[in-house]
Design a protein around this nucleic acid. Structure first.
Lengths: 227, 227
DNA sequence: CGTGGAATTGATTACGTTCAATAGATGTGG
DNA sequence: CCACATCTATTGAACGTAATCAATTCCACG
């Protein structure tokens, strides 16, 4: 879906201001009812939920171009939190402006609905990932997804992308311990499926990566890529 | 969110017709681009995705009152399938009618957005469930969720609800084998946390069930219940 | 240079899978 | 209404993936 110049202008006009969030800080916290919507323009964030013992589970990674919380115009309270994984820059949109847009500009409303549905589709795929795939394929699957999403956001160089996550965070999102992530990641590198250095991931062979991870890009609702 | 009489009428007017789907049949299949939206009025359905070897993973259960596919007005192709778990009766709404409603009736659009966001919240909780909780708690968690959702839909009698799923299907949704479901379910019944008979589940002690499963209803965005 | 978080590696344990066999339930046709 | 087929549930034994506990090493940063 492509926005027209006018539509982009409408969005730009309704933006309030930009803001920067420190690494590790919450952008929004569970239970809040924020009165503005956040669009990430730089850095990585993650959605997470607390579970017993003060542990986390990460349910999504947000990269530049992603919206944190369309929820604000419809739901009362956030049922999860969003945290800055790296320093994050966001543009804020007052909820009132968003409501106005939703009711007056059907095409923009459609665009927002589209991002919501893609978020949902990603969540579904993560659930399948967690429910059916062993550690090595699960890990590769998320690398495939992030490469493709980074590519769409214009953040890739060839078949590599910046990857600021620690193995701990990776574990918290996939449902593994950091110890196990370390072992499996090591194995994947030995097998030449991934190359990781300087907070940057390279997938040397896209087709091999996809087939190893059983990765079908259909759920991202975009074109596949070729390297 | 409560709809007015007029709003309900608008929805009723845009409905095309009802349809019945046999048990085990797809209501919509992955890859399709359906031109109508389905609302379940009777029976259970499930969203599922195929994985390698022809296995399934179930990503959602749909009960009366749930909408199958708001997607149709926005996305091109279904990224997953929906199957009738029992015989299912649906009301169909042509996509064009839905588009019309979305653009002309902001409050109804909001209601549809609300159901989408709750679906997403449920998915998030399922992901946390799969990623962090052991089998017994995971199983109880889904029972808690379904009891509450059934209650909202007016389908409970006291603290019991109809439960047409096989242990195989339960396993396919939680990421366990049917063998393991059988064992864990047996244990939960011995401990008096669940009572299961005639395709009907009873949770004798709601508070105990909730605390055992670490179940926090916030993600369903509705009131909790007391029995 | 020293400190604390992140990553690696090893040894042991445990939760859930797999394979297999049996019993129970449900439905169908003769 | 019984006989047979099929799907579902139960139970047991052996195995395997990932968790846990623990000790080091690596690295970024003040």
């Amino acid at each position: 879906m492509k926005l027209t110049k006018e539509e982009k202008q409408i969005l730009a006009d309704s933006a309030r201001k930009t803001d920067t969030i420190q690494k590790g800080r919450d952008i929004i916290t569970q239970g809040q009812r924020p009165n503005e919507m956040h669009l990430i323009v730089e850095g990585w964030a993650c959605r997470y939920k607390l579970v017993e013992h003060g542990e986390y589970h990460i349910t999504a990674f947000l990269i530049p171009g992603d919206i944190c919380d369309i929820h604000t115009t419809v739901l009362e309270r956030m049922d999860h939190s969003i945290r800055a994984v790296t320093p994050v820059t966001v543009i804020k949109f007052p909820s009132i402006e968003i409501s106005r847009i939703l009711s007056r500009h059907p095409r923009l409303a459609g665009a927002l609905a589209w991002t919501t549905l893609v978020d949902e589709a990603i969540l579904r795929e993560w659930l399948v990932n967690a429910g059916t795939r062993p550690a090595d394929k699960r890990l590769m699957h998320i690398f495939c997804e992030i490469l493709l999403r980074s590519h769409i956001a214009g953040l890739t160089q060839d078949n590599s992308f910046e990857f600021p996550l620690t193995q701990i965070e990776l574990g918290e999102s996939l449902g593994f311990t950091d110890v196990h992530i370390s072992r499996v990641l090591g194995k994947l590198q030995q097998e030449g499926l991934v190359y990781l250095a300087n907070k940057r991931i390279t997938l040397p062979d896209w087709e091999r990566a996809k087939s190893f991870a059983d990765f079908d890009p259909i759920y991202l609702h975009c074109q596949d890529i070729t390297f």
